[in-house]
Design a binder for these strands. Structure first.
Lengths: 208, 208
DNA sequence: TAGATTGTTAATCGATTAACAATC
DNA sequence: TAGATTGTTAATCGATTAACAATC
């Protein structure tokens, strides 16, 4: 099974946010591809193609139904499911992610957090208690954990990735500024902050 | 002045990391476009084009010089400069960023951090002391701050963006899960974690 | 020299945009 | 009805890959 393309997923998340905003404002039950395209800086043809890809139809002169598109995106991206996840690395970043409210809204359920540092063990982050890293394998297997979030320092990232993949997680979310290699069947999403730094530095350089 | 394209910058940061690794290993003074392309999953023609774009030449049968390419990327992206920056929002995420060592390596110099919460004021994050948000405008102007990092909750993000842009920052790095609008001349880099969540959820959905 | 690797042009591929008939 | 908006096909654009002569 081959999934959707990266760029399409990114746009779907983007539509999702804008439409959640529309719904919050209340007044708007439908939208046209022109107006959402303008709000997102995307061509209206692109929007229509994307809607076709996820199999929602609009109505001429009326547009697309906000609620229908929202629930279709939820189904398409899997926000309506529940994926057990663990965080490895319970420092500030790990703590910030553990407390991120939207975690559950996107289908992830945090079941445990780990650290090697004895001083952190027993502390609470988000709704879970930090456990020693040595337990990670057992917990992953016991709870059928599918996602591992890596928020350890760069030098430990590969080792943690190994522990997680050996225990059977299907995907990794890597926040460590390091390249990790994993078995082919494991999906890795790198959240490399350095790309942002690069863009910002480049832009500021252009400015001066 | 129009800058480099997003995708090129991303690849440059990527090359940079791989080459820093090569240099750390010590043994390797030159590289071929084939080997770095393979390491990065990029076509070797692409690598050669990118090198041409940043004006470094290689030598047939020898390849490109690691040190030369590294220093050229530093110059091109502006890592060799110093851009004063502030962080607004001194919670866990702000603290994690403030302590991120590579900050300086990419040209950013953290000069101050802010928060609205009285309990956080006076605490240290990274090398700076947290100040009340009401001081942000004065500090930005006094120190010629060019970048504002936004790590506040979503509902406050726009307000913070307004304060920063009115005070004169040229770029924003937005970690809040919110869309912010700014004057045209201000550059915004959004670090929207939800895109990562979307990709991971979609992948896990495909798997089950 | 022979052969590996660059630099660059041409070919391919895919993604974006434009256009417009169909429709409500 | 008239006109706004979809759905889809065609046209454009840009990015990626292939190819190969030049070179050390």
């Amino acid at each position: 099974v081959v999934g959707l393309q990266h760029a399409l997923i990114e746009r779907l998340v983007h539509y999702y946010h804008v439409l959640v905003g529309f719904r919050a404002n209340g007044d708007r039950s439908h939208f046209s591809t022109d107006e959402i395209g303008e709000a997102m800086n995307v061509d209206s043809s692109q929007v229509r193609k994307d809607m076709a890809k996820i199999d929602v139809a609009g109505r001429p002169r009326v547009g697309f139904e906000v609620d229908l598109v929202l629930s279709t995106i939820e189904k398409t991206l899997g926000f309506d499911c529940e994926y057990p996840a663990v965080i490895v690395g319970s420092g500030r970043l790990g703590g910030a992610l553990a407390s991120y409210r939207s975690f559950a809204a996107y289908g992830l359920r945090l079941v445990a957090a780990f650290d090697v540092d004895d001083r952190k063990i027993g502390k609470r982050i988000g709704k879970v208690t930090v456990q020693p890293l040595s337990d990670v394998g057992a917990v992953v297997q016991r709870d059928g954990v599918r996602l591992g979030v890596i928020t350890v320092p760069a030098p430990s990232a590969q080792e943690v990735a190994n522990l997680l993949t050996e225990a059977g997680v299907q995907a990794l979310w890597n926040f460590a500024p390091a390249r990790i290699s994993v078995p082919e069947e494991v999906f890795v999403r790198d959240e490399h902050i350095a790309v942002g730094l690069g863009e910002l530095a480049h832009h500021l350089k252009m400015r001066s």
